[in-house]
Design a protein around this nucleic acid. Structure first.
Lengths: 339, 339
DNA sequence: TTGAAAGCGCTAACAC
DNA sequence: GTGTTAGCGCTTTCAA
């Protein structure tokens, strides 16, 4: 039946060489004669040998993986960041070990501890808010730590992100520039999602800067805010704050939900009310009307993060902080003179 | 500056015990006196000790992780499967190591090889089609292999899935029952996504069973089919096949794209044309009109998979194949007498 | 309940 | 270009 699986020693014996030569043959840059290497690979193949990296990890004190924590698996923004990051790391022989926190910093703490036990070469976090213990664990780990999607004032180590507050300010400025004054905000009603809380803060300060009333705040639930929660929040907004001219939603998904509520009520967007989202998700570009949004360039965040990791690990100079500035995308849902 | 990080030996010395006692203290069920354990934990904390599982993995020949391969990070269906699976495995001390294949079986092969080197306790794949080498590697690995989201005729090992062809048959039957005959299909135009190809096959055979013409096939691109590709396919369908009464799309996302094209043309759904999707994504439940779809119960697939893994690893009897039957959800987009 | 010795399967370091 | 020796940091095993 199932016999003990082959190890390097077995391959070495079969190929008539030492284990060390087999070890070298399994590295790309090792100096092994072509014929020897071929014989080794043939023997390995016949024995069904699969290299055991658990042993290599221990001996070489290298694991060749990078831990990446994102809030949720099912989110195009974070998926795009991972999509930007993974191939660049992969080219350097670094594998990504992905974890997701469900937007919960306690869960993040558990994950960080679990992952650090496996000795990653570096760790990437989403957001700049963590438990005290998480910070302690990360600092003690003595590996590069990159916080992303945020610009924390007191970072653990390195940062690739943007100011969520400033991004929201861009959106408020845009709407005010279009002549709107009664602007509402639909977002999460906890601070569990720091990025969301920062966006709300950005909304408040930008409104204040324009001398506008910023009391039209609708709490839509716990992050992540779904399309459904966006729609439900819109019900409360339309019923509770008549005369609202514009709504900024915490994400395109909730903005789309808000849009569907308008459709069901026969309200025209942007004719009767203007709606804006955040994230430049695909749905913003295809729904009717298309949604004005902010593109935080998730893939760029991933690429810059990967490059930063490689630079640090290879001892190259690297800036401790990269600001990937978001872009405002103005489309149908906030266009003037339509609807 | 940064000194060599603490190991068990250091903790043992600080606590005045042997390394073996420290090792036991770090296991949950180990028999260590309460006072001893407390002293050890205190010492560990003061030294900033983080348990090194790379060493434990090697010695105990256990890694306590399960590799899970999904086609894409950014897909609510697969995210829900992982969401169903991860907590159950986690309760048993098994961590999920996630990989994504981009719907590419060559990429799957690379990933499988990489992951097997890290010696997972079990491996979960999405879909039943793999390269010959992938199959060989998996068989040689001598660990539980679970193929999901499919019911392959010749599985590598174990299966938790459903018949994508039969599911599509349910949808065709529903539309025919509503009186439609000129039914089109929008799907991927490669076989890279086996589940998609199976759905197309199911469409063809169900149409044939009803004696209907199944030539209205629109290729929408390479999987995953986006909302945009669904909209573009709808353009081709409406322009190329006048008189089409109903469209089945490969997923709710492409169905939503198709719906937006109808909205832009002023076509009523379901009045002028009927649209159905697949996957029971959130958007199907919130867009206007809501989309008739099929719920493949992604979380249940994950739960059953996790349970199967645990049963096999603990030597309990487990069926080699579980069929999680999908459910047809009929809503506004295919309702009779509306629009 | 605790400890001592041995060793998991590789690779670092050095030799030739 | 290849081999030898030692050992990574834990846990298995056996003993007390």
């Amino acid at each position: 039946m199932m016999q003990r699986s082959a190890r390097m020693k077995d391959v070495a014996m079969a190929a008539g060489v030492s284990v060390m030569t087999v070890s070298r043959a399994f590295k790309k840059d090792a100096s092994v004669k072509q014929a020897t290497r071929a014989a080794i690979m043939k023997a390995a193949d016949e024995l069904g040998y699969v290299y055991d990296s658990t042993a290599a990890n221990l001996r070489s004190q290298k694991t060749d993986f990078v831990a990446v924590l994102i809030p949720s698996l099912n989110n195009a923004n974070f998926a795009d960041t991972v999509g930007g990051l993974a191939p660049i790391l992969s080219d350097q022989g670094l594998q990504v070990l992905l974890g997701y926190t469900n937007y919960d910093i306690e869960e993040e703490e558990r994950l960080v501890e679990q992952l650090l036990r496996r000795r990653p070469e570096a760790i990437v976090l989403t957001g700049g808010r963590h438990t005290a213990r998480t910070r302690r664990l990360l600092q003690a780990a003595a590996i590069p730590v990159i916080e992303t999607w945020d610009l924390p004032e007191d970072p653990v180590d390195r940062v690739v992100g943007f100011s969520n507050a400033a991004a929201m300010g861009m959106m408020v400025d845009h709407l005010v520039g279009q002549g709107h004054g009664r602007i509402a905000f639909i977002g999460g009603d906890t601070d569990g999602d720091t990025r969301g809380a920062d966006r709300r803060r950005g909304f408040l300060s930008a409104m204040a800067a324009h001398g506008l009333d910023a009391s039209r705040l609708i709490g839509a639930g716990r992050p992540p805010i779904s399309m459904r929660e966006g729609a439900d929040a819109m019900v409360r907004l339309l019923d509770g704050y008549p005369g609202t001219e514009a709504v900024i939603c915490i994400s395109d998904l909730s903005a789309f939900g808000a849009l569907t509520e308008c459709a069901r009520r026969g309200l025209s967007v942007p004719g009767d009310i203007v709606i804006a989202g955040f994230g430049a998700y695909e749905i913003a570009d295809i729904c009717v009307p298309r949604l004005t949004t902010i593109d935080p360039h998730p893939a760029r965040i991933g690429q810059a993060t990967a490059q930063m990791i490689i630079d640090v690990l290879t001892g190259r100079p690297a800036p401790p902080r990269i600001d990937v500035t978001p872009t405002l995308i103005v489309t149908e849902s906030t266009a003037i003179g339509q609807g």
